[in-house]
Amino acid sequence: MGSMKILKSGMFSTIQDLGRFGHQAKGISVSGAMDQLSLRLANILVGNDEKAPCLEMTVKGDKIEFQKDAVIAITGCDMGFTVNGRPVWIDRTLFVNKGDVLDSGFCRYGKLSYLAVRGGLDIPKVLGSSSTFLRASIGGHKGRKLMAGDVLDFPDLESSMSRAVQVTREIKDLLFHPRKVRFVYGNEKDRFTEKGVGTFLNSQYTIQNDSDRMGYRMKGDVVEHVTNGDIISGGINFGSIQIPGNGQPIVMMADRQTTGGYTKIGQVIQSDLPYLSQKKPQDIVEFQSVTVDEAIELWRELNMKIRAWKESLDYGYYRVNELRRFTLSFNNKTYNVKAVEV
């Protein structure tokens, strides 16, 4: 079994997969990755199942020592990652050796980065998922955010890759290319005046500092209700756009509650949730309505692009039978060399 040790914790890092489904009727949140696209891409880069648990890092990443050789990938936003002090690229396969130290600074754009390890992190499942749900202290590593001294296990590297693969610019643009956040109207649209709907479509909203994995609170022009913002509690989805009595939108995120009693003007479409998730406090958001058919087509197109890219990858797999290490000196410089029998 391999492992990696957190030498210094980042601002807010947790273990996440694609979520804990089938338990909302019991009041248990789905949780899971905020930016599910980046988590999927990180796992694809190292040859994992797309649903495998990853490290989700927020704003600033962790300092990590690898205690065994590993194949890793980092996706999402660039936090200035280095290995042993040398800059490394994100969105591509990385090969690290026993004793290597991964470090980072603050995000250069966006907010979230995802670290995948070939073979997947060895994290026990709770109710079918390894995702951390902090409010219930379940899942992930001890039900909490990661701290200095934590050790995360992963399987020994029985097979590796002879080639580094990378995410295409076309797919990367799906995540970060500037645009309005698209949504479909919900059944409660008639709870808002025509003026209120127009205000929502034509205004800019600022994500507030008290936003978190549960919801993004926004501030901007007031969205007018017909009467008020209260309804009988109903189900809440990832991306539900609630507008309470004060007329200020709240977009529900990965750790949302299961029900809510505020009017919902609509639902952020699935293909734009990763884009919205990468927004941080004080970023500006604008909304654009689309039809249900358009939302479905956009989701289909996104997944077709990912599938086509995934099928084009050539990892050059080989089985690791024997590993030997050498120290070589050349021109007064010392090099650590790893020889693998394949």
Rank of each mutant, 00 (worst) to 15 (best):
G2I: 09
L7N: 04
S9Q: 14
S13A: 12
D17S: 06
G19I: 10
F21Y: 14
H23N: 13
K26A: 14
G27M: 10
S29K: 01
S29P: 04
V30A: 12
G32E: 02
D35M: 09
N43M: 07
L45A: 01
L45Q: 02
V46L: 06
K51L: 06
P53K: 11
K60E: 11
I64C: 05
I64V: 15
V71N: 00
I72E: 02
T75E: 07
D78N: 15
W89H: 15
W89S: 14
I90S: 00
T93Y: 03
D103T: 15
S104V: 09
S104G: 08
S104Q: 04
Y109I: 06
G110V: 07
Y114A: 02
L115N: 01
V117D: 00
G119P: 04
G119S: 09
I123A: 03
L127I: 10
S131I: 05
T132S: 06
A136G: 12
I138M: 10
G140D: 05
K142D: 10
M147A: 13
A148I: 00
L152K: 03
D153G: 11
D153L: 15
D153F: 15
Q166I: 00
V167F: 05
R169C: 03
I171M: 04
D173Y: 02
L174F: 12
P178T: 03
K180D: 11
F183Y: 09
F183I: 09
D190K: 14
D190S: 14
T193D: 07
T193M: 08
T199L: 08
F200V: 00
Y205K: 02
T206M: 14
N209C: 09
D210C: 08
G215I: 02
Y216M: 07
V223P: 03
H225C: 10
I236C: 09
N237F: 15
N237G: 10
S240P: 05
I243K: 01
I243Q: 05
G245T: 15
N246P: 00
G247L: 03
Q248K: 02
Q248D: 05
M253E: 02
R256C: 10
T258S: 11
G261V: 11
Y262F: 14
T263D: 05
G266Y: 10
Q267H: 15
D272P: 07
Y275S: 08
Y275N: 06
Q278R: 06
Q282V: 12
D283H: 13
D283M: 03
E286N: 09
E286V: 05
V290R: 02
I296W: 05
I296Q: 12
L298W: 07
W299N: 13
E301C: 04
E301K: 12
I306G: 07
R307H: 09
A308S: 12
W309I: 02
E311F: 07
S312T: 04
S312C: 06
S312Y: 09
V320A: 02
V320N: 01
V320R: 10
E322P: 00
L323H: 06
L323V: 15
R325K: 14
R325G: 08
N331R: 14
N332E: 13
N336R: 13
A339F: 10
